[in-house]
Design a protein around this nucleic acid. Structure first.
Length: 489
RNA sequence: GCCCCCAUCGUCUAGUGGUUAGGACAUAUGGUUCUCAGCCAUAGAACACCGGUUCGACUCCGGUUGGGGGUACCA
């Protein structure tokens, strides 16, 4: 049987980096094994539905390069479309399917109507907790006689449908990342299958859909581990083949707490906006719980597709470490061509009101490429290259070992000397040679010349080298800035 | 409370009975001296604890502690 995996998010907000990792591992496992990967939307909770949530999730997946073979995805114009033989792939469009299958369970005696009120359930729980007993539904409505049931139904009483779980024995399965896991059946409660609004619960819909869609490997977050026995019981009631399960450890923050929206910066979209590259995010996130077994750390999505395997997936929760992520981002930024990086930075620069021609932008980006961590740092890092006038204190021009008078003199002489250099020689390399010679001939201190030159050109104490900046800035602009610097003294 | 999962440097991890416990990020120091970054070099930094099995445990077993998840008509 060909391998088939899926990613099944709920449209209750934005795609979380943890969710992206789950999607990625599902996708990688399918690709590695020549299988199929599909995306299904689990929107069975009408109350938690967020407008635009589906689009956002799909956009994030697309940005990360995770392509589905079937299911729900984004069309050319960003509209939500569905493709595949086992559709629809949105659970709210499959209500008839769940109705049919829950009837089968009802007929077989594996499920029953329950009329218990919220109040009774709450009370039951507090009694159980107070008595240090395991919590869970006590099965009161299991034994309802047909007549009472018919009366209640006729009277329009609100009800749910629950599965009838066995009271003895245990449910055991072998998880692909965790190994053998055992649950005592007596602790598995009679889970609600169909809610009173006639929508299925996650537990029911996921089993029906995974079976109908031919999912062979259920890959999901660790939070689902405790409910897996319920799902297995359901497969058994239907007489369906039980899929393989792989429960991925959670992603936690630096305080070892579950990553959450409250702590900020967890949605994929946030990271994208902050100027992180998709390749860097994918690479970083893949290594949170997976590694190739050797010392390589840079992997493209394609390479991951070739090497991914569950026996290299670790069981422990992983901290989403920003420093390491920054390092990955820097690595990927440096691998980009100046042209591509310039285009990637352009939106951030334009947003800051810094608009420039492509050619100049490419040169400018080349200047700061090695120091750029995020694309969003571009405006601050290169702003001085585009500014009309540089705002800095005149004291900044004076090197720590120099004086105001000497600096003024040197700047003036430098201006004169630079004028003598032809436009054709105005490159970083030639400037370095010529100015270097000039410094030695006149017996100036290197810092006495280069420091004020740097400040005059950048207006800042931290910046790229003066020769590089002069090369990018061009002769006219460079002379102008040095003159301005001189005047300030 | 009850159930389940997890446990190697600060962080991500390698390691599957015998290793000087390896790498990367981060940190510190030095070098590259006009600054910062970068780059190069060097350093410090870990097997949670207690029992057991064994000639020998980071590795296997049990317990303790700690952390996480679940315990909904949410997913």
């Amino acid at each position: 049987m060909p391998i088939k995996t899926r990613f099944a998010p709920s449209p209750t907000g934005f795609l979380h980096v943890g969710g992206l990792r789950t999607a990625l591992f599902s996708y990688l496992f399918a690709r590695k094994n020549g299988g199929e990967f599909l995306v299904r939307i689990e929107d069975t909770d009408q109350e938690r539905f967020v407008e635009g949530g589906i689009e956002n999730i799909l956009r994030s997946l697309q940005w990360a390069g995770i392509q589905a073979d079937a299911g729900v995805w984004l069309g050319e114009k960003g509209e939500v479309i569905q493709k595949g033989a086992a559709g629809p792939y949105t659970q709210s469009e499959r209500l008839g399917v769940y109705k049919k299958y829950v009837q089968e369970l009802l007929d077989k005696g594996n499920a029953y109507h329950c009329f218990c009120s919220k109040e009774r359930l709450d009370e039951l729980r507090s009694i159980q907790e107070a008595g240090k007993q395991p919590t869970g539904y006590d099965g009161l409505c299991r034994s309802l006689d047909e007549k009472t049931k018919a009366n209640k139904l006729e009277g329009g009483e609100s009800f749910v449908i629950r599965m009838k779980t066995p009271r003895e024995g245990s449910t055991i399965f072998t998880d692909l990342v965790r190994g053998k896991v055992t649950f005592d059946n007596s602790l598995i409660e009679d889970q609600v299958l169909i809610k009173s609004d006639s929508f299925p619960t996650y537990h029911f819909a996921v089993v029906v859909d995974d079976h109908l869609m031919g999912i062979t490997h259920v890959i999901r977050g660790e939070e689902w581990l405790p409910s897996t026995p319920k799902h297995i019981l359901l497969y058994q009631m239907f007489g369906w083949q039980i899929p393989e399960f792989a429960h991925l450890s959670l992603l936690v923050n630096e305080q070892k707490q579950k990553l959450s929206k409250r702590h900020g910066d967890v949605s994929v979209e946030d990271f994208k906006e902050k100027g992180y590259l998709a390749e860097a995010l994918v690479n970083f996130i893949a290594f949170l719980g997976w590694n190739p077994g050797d010392e390589r750390e840079i992997f493209s999505l394609k390479e991951l597709e070739q090497e991914f395997s569950f026996d290299k997936v670790s069981k422990a929760a992983a901290v989403f470490n920003r420093e390491k992520f920054d390092w990955y981002n820097r690595e990927y930024i440096r691998k980009m061509s100046d042209e591509a990086l310039a285009e990637a930075c352009r939106p951030y620069l334009e947003n800051a009101g810094l608009v420039q021609k492509a050619e100049f932008l490419t040169h400018a980006v080349g200047l700061v490429k090695d120091r750029l961590v995020r694309l969003s740092d571009a405006p601050e890092m290169m702003g001085f290259l585009f500014a009309e006038e540089l705002a800095y204190e005149s004291e900044l021009l004076i090197w720590k070992k120099s004086t105001r008078d000497d600096t003024a003199k040197i700047l003036k002489k430098l201006h004169v000397f630079l004028q003598s250099i032809g436009e054709n020689d105005w490159t970083k390399e030639t400037l370095e040679i010529k100015v270097g010679e000039w410094i030695r001939e006149n017996e100036y201190g290197t810092g006495d010349v280069l420091w004020p030159m740097r400040v005059a050109l950048s207006g800042a104490k931290n910046s790229p080298g003066p020769y590089e900046m002069a090369g990018v800035l061009g002769k006219t602009r460079t002379l102008q800035l040095i003159q301005t610097g001189h005047k300030r003294l």
